[in-house]
Design a protein around this nucleic acid. Structure first.
Lengths: 206, 206
DNA sequence: TGAAGAATGGACCGCGCGGTCCAATAGGTA
DNA sequence: TACCTATTGGACCGCGCGGTCCATTCTTCA
């Protein structure tokens, strides 16, 4: 699908993506035009369409992919090593720190909201990101169970889903209200739940 | 702030808002133009600007307010009566049903994402909605504690925050991935947690 | 019943911005 | 050196769409 791409060309393409990502983080997709990107990345109109033939949507998709990578990368040292209670806390602090720093500007959700949630390519990016993310969390919960720091009755997939939901939900509300408390409280609570004994199971699924 | 408004005028204004809301639910903000709204509501350009002098943003804000009302209204019978475990389950089912039905189309988040998360008016709407929502949940958790169906160690505000976060996070991921499982699992788990005894408190805040 | 003001219709404008095109250059390979 | 292709520059277009304006028709009330 990709044409021949010189090292120089690849570099330019990357420069465009990263430059566009920066602009979009600052101003939001609808406020960033191709001319802005062109100016910020010291490129010309023809280059934009040379590397992203399908135009703006194409470029935005590349930026979304890039931002999705960032989401994992930003929390990677901690996320990949959730092998003890202390390390879970370290990850939790890292997550809160990240979102606290970026506040309203959740780059990925801004992108995807614009591209339309119905777009299959957008969904693919999101699904992929969430799957990887959840994978790390499941492994972490399992590790806690193995070390006896989590209640044996905990279902790793359920717990990981709850924690992931706490993060995304908290981040969403932070973005919407500028309040960090949702993320803080919900994530802390979700992780704490790992140590609570499950009561007599009453009803489990929907 | 509002000019004189005849009954007829108010009706027209309402027709515009509701018609615009419908269109936006279907196609998303960026794909709905003033001309579309004009056509769908059998109005003229001048009426749009007569009732929403600040133009499109003004109208979108009114639509966002309208949609925020809907969010509460849709789950109202159950949400206002979380006085027993059974009723909590009824509310949970109702929430899942609502979001399952609308899938990708979360009207409010679509609006607010577009208007820019930085806009104070947008934040006001969101904050107001979440506060009311959380109020109902806190009351419900307290009721469960009072009736002995929830663990006495549960903090109603914390639990309500976790549940609210599970809903918004699950809804967000449903929108992004078309998977209902996040909402289903996280909300069920968050509610189930009400019945789990809290372990020896280790570290509570950040 | 007539005047004031609200409500409505719809033609019109302007421009921002995504997208096109062609010409010019740089870089690699034989 | 010569050629091919990737890379680049930037002028140009077209139109969608938000926004303006004025004329006309309804409502209300004294």
């Amino acid at each position: 699908m990709e044409r021949a791409l010189t090292a120089k060309g690849a570099a330019t393409r990357q420069r465009i993506v990263e430059g566009a990502a920066l602009l979009i983080r600052a101003d939001g997709v609808p406020n960033v035009g191709l001319d802005d990107i062109r100016a910020a990345t010291a490129t010309s109109k023809s280059q934009l369409f040379h590397y992203f033939p399908a135009g703006k949507a194409d470029l935005m998709l590349a930026v979304a992919k890039f931002e999705a990578e960032q989401v994992i990368a930003e929390q990677l040292p901690q996320l990949a090593d959730l092998t003890s209670w202390r390390k879970w806390q370290a990850w939790r602090r890292r997550v809160i720190q990240i979102y606290d720093a970026q506040r309203q500007r959740c780059p990925l959700s801004a992108l995807t909201a614009q591209l339309g949630t119905g777009d299959p390519a957008t969904r693919e990016i999101h699904a992929n990101l969430l799957d990887r993310w959840q994978g790390y969390l499941v492994a972490g919960v399992q590790a806690l169970k193995d070390s006896g720091e989590a209640d044996p009755g905990v279902d790793p997939r359920v717990a990981a889903t709850s924690i992931l939901t706490a993060v995304t939900g908290g981040a969403g509300m932070l973005q919407a209200t500028d309040r960090i408390s949702y993320l803080q409280i919900a994530l802390t609570d979700a992780i704490d739940t790992l140590r609570r004994p499950a009561p007599a199971p009453r009803r489990r699924s929907a």
